[in-house]
């Protein structure tokens, strides 16, 4: 079974916590250098010295689409799920139901924002910003099958039987 359309592949093992992806995302979508405006959230665990980039994974059965009271969470043709800023009232239901807590709050409007895979670009800006570390990479449709992804995960020893 092929994975659904384009998606970002996240390899937290390679993440160094530089947060360039956050800056790139804020520059692309809000034209400013402020990590608070980024759709990417790099979570740092200081005690364990780990960094994990959290991005909307556009779940196949996305719960945020179902719980949004304004029906503002919309699945786009590219496969990504984005917030319709015309109707979002900033109730944050999508943040609370998200299994990874990925939607972020736009500090200026209070509405939520998630990754749209930079739909109008050849490559998402966060992926371009992470070219050296390759913690974030773009998998296009057909580029990765689920078994192949599984085998790759097993090779990095990062695969856990539970997650």
């Amino acid at each position: 079974m092929k994975l659904r359309r384009d998606h970002l592949s996240i390899d937290p093992e390679k993440c160094t916590g530089c947060r360039r992806c956050m800056i790139a995302c804020a520059m692309k979508h809000h034209n400013r250098i402020d990590p608070d405006f980024s759709c990417v959230d790099v979570i740092g665990f200081a005690a364990q010295d780990l960094d994990v980039p959290v991005i909307c994974l556009a779940c196949e059965t996305a719960p945020c689409i179902k719980v949004c009271p304004m029906n503002a969470r919309i699945r786009q043709a590219s496969g990504s799920v984005v917030t319709d800023t015309d109707v979002c009232i900033g109730c944050r239901a999508c943040v609370y139901i998200c299994p990874v807590g990925s939607p972020r709050i736009n500090p200026a409007t209070g509405q939520t924002m998630t990754c749209d895979l930079c739909a109008d670009e050849t490559e998402p800006w966060c992926v371009a910003a992470c070219r050296q570390e390759r913690a974030l990479t773009l998998c296009t449709d057909g580029a990765a099958s689920k078994p192949a992804a599984r085998r790759a995960a097993a090779r990095t020893l990062a695969g856990s039987p539970r997650y």
């Binding site: 937290p12 093992e13 979570i43 665990f45 005690a47 364990q48 010295d49 780990l50 994990v52 990874v100 990062a158 695969g159 856990s160 997650y163």
Partner: peptide, 11 residues
């Protein structure tokens, strides 16, 4: 420190 990144949801 620096190990076992797959535990991050638990962390």
């Amino acid at each position: 420190r620096g190990g076992a990144v797959h535990t991050w949801p638990m962390l």
